[in-house]
């Protein structure tokens, strides 16, 4: 139990946007199978950190290592194929396609890899992938909406569908950028239950969240980010009791 097994290591990462030091000297270690929460005020650099991990942004210096593989310099699709999926702060979905197809596409990426000229088969003959997608939609409680256009879903449903799009890939590392933002209390609770269920399956998660109820019910470890720096990290109880955190975040403007 004590054996620490680091699967994601963000090492000395800096990111500058012109004069803005959005990430400064970030060192973050995420252990296998754990849920690691990142909290901090708006503009702290949380989303930027995820962007650096998944290859959307290149760090100004430093590197990200995932299970012994250096991610820095790789393309986003290569990073995904290594087993990293992300839910975005504003849902990134295929608005013009049906909910079912939205969930089938990532399943096909997992099965067929980054490119396959698969045009002689009919989509209707992909019964295995389809069943998998339907099963996933059942898990997130969206099976009745499978034929709807994804663009016409409510905000909360878009997020849930995006979560399903990530989960169907059985990623080794799941990055969640405010997965419950804009959800009702009821939907938030459903999502927490769902995320707890995944936890028991041993998936490693990094979650950015504003809702402390969500953070404290899910996280094994918390890092607090403020103005691009990690000002504290530790177990939920340690972080809760840390006066610096009280000042910068919990008791402050928020």
């Amino acid at each position: 139990m004590e054996k620490s097994n680091v699967v994601l290591h963000v090492a000395d990462v800096h990111k500058r946007f012109g004069g803005l030091h959005a990430l400064a000297d970030i060192d973050l270690q995420v252990e296998e199978g754990k849920t690691h929460a990142i909290i901090g005020p708006n503009g702290a650099g949380k989303s930027t950190l995820l962007n650096v991990i998944i290859g959307k942004l290149a760090p100004t210096s430093g590197q990200v290592v995932f299970d012994g593989t250096v991610l820095t310099g790789r393309k986003p699709y290569q990073i995904n194929q290594l087993g990293i999926a992300r839910v975005f702060q504003t849902p990134e979905i295929f608005a013009d396609l049906s909910v079912l197809h939205n969930v089938m596409i990532p399943a096909l990426a997992k099965r067929d890899g980054m490119f396959k000229l698969n045009m002689l088969r009919s989509l209707d003959s992909e019964t295995g992938i389809r069943a998998e997608a339907e099963h996933m939609l059942e898990d997130v409680g969206m099976i009745t909406r499978r034929e709807m256009l994804a663009g016409s879903l409510s905000r909360g449903d878009k997020r849930r569908m995006e979560l399903a799009m990530c989960l169907i890939q059985h990623p080794r590392l799941l990055l969640l950028d405010e997965p419950t933002a804009g959800m009702s209390r009821h939907d938030t609770n459903t999502t927490i239950e769902l995320l707890k269920k995944i936890k028991s399956r041993g998936m490693t998660k990094v979650i950015i969240e504003h809702d402390m109820h969500v953070v404290f019910s899910l996280a094994d470890k918390i890092s607090v980010l403020a103005q691009g720096r990690i000002i504290a990290d530790g177990s939920p109880d340690e972080v809760r009791g840390n006066p610096k955190v009280q000042e910068a975040y919990l008791g402050g403007a928020h």
């Binding site: 979905i93 608005a95 096909l108 980054m114 989509l123």
Partner: peptide, 26 residues
């Protein structure tokens, strides 16, 4: 082509190319 998995990928690229890349497609 339109009714194949490949065709669905093309439609997905039209709909959201960024998402395709973060979903593991080149």
């Amino acid at each position: 082509i339109a009714g194949s998995p490949f065709g669905m990928m093309l439609k997905a690229i039209k709909s959201n190319q960024t998402r395709m890349q973060f979903t593991g497609f080149n």
